[in-house]
Every structure is written in structure tokens, then in C-alpha cells.
């Protein structure tokens, strides 16, 4: 395969990481916590969609929609039950440990309901592949849809955050929760909304991921979740464009690493790059320089 082909595959995988990383970065920016269960929400989304398709023969679009609603409700519920009671806890470690607990909880729930065996995901993307450069480069339907979905989500989210009232409330809460409250912003509602958006996007990421790599187990979400977290840190945690760029770069590094170096150490390369970036620029690529308040 050609370099350009690897690059395209990398962008496609990276787009999935970017969509997952958005959930991480928004929750971190607004609720100031790392939601380590975010990757597992992806897995729940994928199982939901698969079950609707195979078990109930639901129309694929409707299945994705129901998957999104399921994850949205799940995200809001997790926040409300597990994280909100710890909102004013003196130690942020308590929240982190809880998030890891929620992650295991979701994996075990999936084990219980769907079993441990690998399920093969049905690709619902029917778009035909496109051949370019006399067949040298192939854009599969999944690749095209994934990249387009990522662009739409990015644009939509950027517009939402900058141009709408709830979006501006999110920015305000992310910068100064107390001052935002003094403006009349309901912080709990804003954080719920953030979890809702992040989790809804996780369902889409789940479908896209499993369309490209069609094997689904209760642990499917864990590794992409961690990589998306890396992508978010890489890009500058809290930054929406950072999540996008971080995710895509990570996908490209991973695929090129697998192609040209070794598929065994590709993940190690990903983490090595992260470490180097953080050594050079601790706030990540798009990280905000925290200004001293006078």
C-alpha cells in the first residue's frame, strides 16, 4: 500500500479518536474531571446498535439514533449518580477512582447482558468505495463517512459552543464556575448537557469504530478510550480544536507506525510521542497558557 493510502487510513482512524476525544475534553473543560468510563460508553453504544439491527431488524439510521439516545441517557445518569455527589469533594482522586469504577461496572454489565464472546458488527455503511489514482488509493465507504462525520461534528460543536446561549454557558463554567453561577448559569444543568453531548457522540464513535474494525466485546471501548484520552491531552485538554487535531495526529501516527515500523510497538510509539509533546509543551498543542490573574 502507498503512503497516501496509509495516511488516509490514519485520518479515518484518527477521526474516530477525535470524536471520542471531544467527549473527554469537554467533560474535563467543564466538569474538571477525567471521565475514564467514556470509552465504555462507546462500547455500550455499539452493542445497543448491533442488538437493534440483528435482534429487532430496526432501520440502521433509527438504530444509530436510538443508540445515541441510550448513550446520552447513560451519560447523564452516570454523572448524576456517580460524579455529582463528589462534585465538592476535597480530593479529585475520589472522582478519578469513581470513574475507573464506573468503567469496570459498564464492562461487567456488558459481560452480563451480551456475554464475553466476540460479536461481529454489521457494517451499516452502504456507500460504495471510491478508487483514486488508478486504483492506487481506495476510499472505502466507511472511511468517507467517518471523515465526513468528524468534520460535521467538529463544525457543529464549534458553532454550538461559540454561538448559542448554552454553549456560552459552557465556556463560562469552564473558565470560572462561581462567576458563571453569579451570571445565573445553572452549573448542574450545564454539566449534564456536557455529558449528554459527549455520550451521544460516543455512540456515533462506537458505530464508526466497529464499522471499520467489526469485532465487538465488552472491552472494545477501553483501548480507543485511552487513546482518545491521550489525543485530548496531546491536543491540549479542554480544547475542542485540540481534540480534533490530537485525535487525527494520533490516528496517523498509529497507522504509519504499524505500517513502517512494527504493528507490535505502534501503541508504544503513540505514547512515546505523547510524552515528547508534553515534555516540550506541557499544556498540549492547543493548551491555553494559564494567565496569572492580577
Amino acid at each position: 500500500m502507498s503512503f497516501v493510502q496509509f495516511l488516509i487510513n490514519g485520518i479515518s482512524l484518527g477521526s474516530v479518536y477525535a470524536i471520542i476525544a471531544l467527549g473527554y475534553t469537554m467533560v474535563y473543560g467543564i466538569a474538571k474531571m477525567l471521565n475514564f468510563a467514556h470509552g465504555d460508553v462507546i462500547m455500550i453504544g455499539a452493542y445497543t446498535v448491533l442488538t437493534l439491527l440483528t435482534g429487532a431488524g430496526v432501520n440502521p439510521w433509527l438504530a444509530v439514533l436510538i443508540g445515541m439516545v441510550t448513550c446520552t441517557v447513560l451519560g447523564i445518569t452516570i454523572e448524576k449518580i456517580a460524579y455529582r455527589p463528589l462534585r465538592n469533594a476535597s480530593s479529585s482522586l475520589a472522582v478519578l477512582i469513581t470513574a475507573i469504577g464506573v468503567s469496570y461496572f459498564l464492562q461487567n454489565i456488558a459481560l452480563l447482558i451480551f456475554g464475553a464472546d466476540t460479536k461481529s458488527f454489521i457494517n451499516i455503511i452502504t456507500l460504495p468505495p471510491v478508487s483514486l489514482a488508478e486504483g492506487q488509493i481506495v476510499l472505502t465507504g466507511t472511511t468517507t463517512v467517518t471523515i465526513i462525520a468528524c468534520i460535521i461534528i467538529m463544525t457543529g460543536l464549534t458553532l454550538f459552543v461559540n454561538k448559542t446561549k448554552p454553549g456560552r454557558a459552557m465556556k463560562a463554567v469552564s473558565e470560572d464556575r462561581g462567576a458563571a453561577q453569579l451570571m445565573g448559569v445553572n452549573v448542574n444543568a450545564t454539566i449534564s448537557l456536557t455529558f449528554a453531548i459527549g455520550s451521544g457522540l460516543a455512540a456515533i464513535a462506537g458505530v464508526l469504530l466497529c464499522s471499520a474494525y467489526p469485532s465487538l466485546t465488552p472491552y472494545t471501548g477501553a483501548m480507543p478510550g485511552i487513546k482518545a484520552f491521550v489525543a485530548a491531552v496531546f491536543g491540549g485538554i479542554g480544547s475542542i480544536p485540540g481534540a480534533m487535531v490530537g485525535g487525527i495526529l494520533l490516528g496517523i501516527i498509529e497507522i504509519l507506525g504499524k505500517a513502517y515500523i512494527s504493528s507490535q510497538v505502534a501503541d508504544a510509539i503513540v505514547f512515546a510521542v505523547l510524552i515528547i509533546v508534553l515534555l516540550v509543551k506541557p499544556t498540549g498543542l492547543f493548551g491555553k497558557n494559564i494567565q496569572e490573574k492580577v
Binding site: R168, A172, E175, A179, A180, K288
Partner: peptide, 14 residues
């Protein structure tokens, strides 16, 4: 405690 990342106008709208 103004929102330093927002514009003056956006702060007022907040």
C-alpha cells in the same frame, strides 16, 4: 473574575 477567554461583548451578554 471576568471571563478572560470571552470577548468584552460576550462577557456583557453573559
Amino acid at each position: 473574575r471576568v471571563f478572560s477567554q470571552l470577548s468584552v461583548y460576550e462577557n456583557l451578554i453573559m
